[in-house]
Computed example of a mutant assay.
Amino acid sequence: MGKDVFRCVECNEKATELHRDYSNGILKITICESCQKPVDKYIEYDPVIILIDAILCKSQAFRHILFNSSLNIHWKLCVFFLLCEAYLRWSLLHGSEHSSDPADIIRYTKEWEFYGMFALAALELAAFCGGVLLCLWLVVVRLKGGTVEFRLLLRALLLSCYGKVLLIPTVIWEHDYSPLCLGLIKLFVLTSNSQAIRVILNSSRHISVMAVFVGLLSEGCVSQICKRLPWTIQDMLAFQ
Rank of each mutant, 00 (worst) to 15 (best):
M1F: 12
G2Q: 09
G2Y: 09
K3V: 01
V5C: 08
V9D: 01
C11D: 04
K14V: 02
R20D: 05
R20S: 02
D21Y: 06
N24S: 12
N24F: 13
K28E: 12
K28I: 08
E33A: 06
S34I: 11
C35S: 13
P38N: 00
K41F: 00
K41H: 01
Y42S: 02
E44L: 15
E44W: 13
Y45V: 00
D46Q: 11
P47I: 03
L51W: 06
I52D: 08
A61G: 05
F62G: 01
I65T: 14
L66I: 08
S70K: 08
N72V: 09
I73H: 04
L77K: 05
F81G: 02
L82D: 11
C84K: 04
Y87R: 05
W90A: 15
L93M: 14
H94I: 01
G95N: 02
S99R: 12
S100E: 14
D101P: 03
D101Y: 03
D104Y: 13
I106V: 15
K110R: 12
F114L: 15
A121T: 07
A121H: 01
A126G: 08
G130N: 09
G131H: 07
C135N: 05
L136H: 03
W137H: 15
V140N: 05
G146F: 14
R155I: 11
R155Y: 10
L157G: 04
L157Q: 04
L159H: 01
V171Q: 03
I172V: 11
W173G: 15
W173A: 15
D176P: 00
D176W: 15
S178R: 14
G183N: 08
G183W: 10
I185L: 12
I185K: 03
L187H: 09
V189Q: 03
V189M: 00
L190N: 08
L190P: 02
I197P: 03
I197Y: 03
R198N: 04
V199I: 12
I200M: 07
S203C: 14
S203V: 06
R205N: 09
V209N: 13
F213E: 01
F213A: 11
V214A: 12
G215E: 07
L216V: 10
L217W: 14
L217G: 10
L217P: 01
C221R: 04
Q224S: 08
I225H: 04
C226R: 09
K227N: 13
R228S: 07
L229Q: 13
P230F: 01
W231D: 00
M236Y: 15
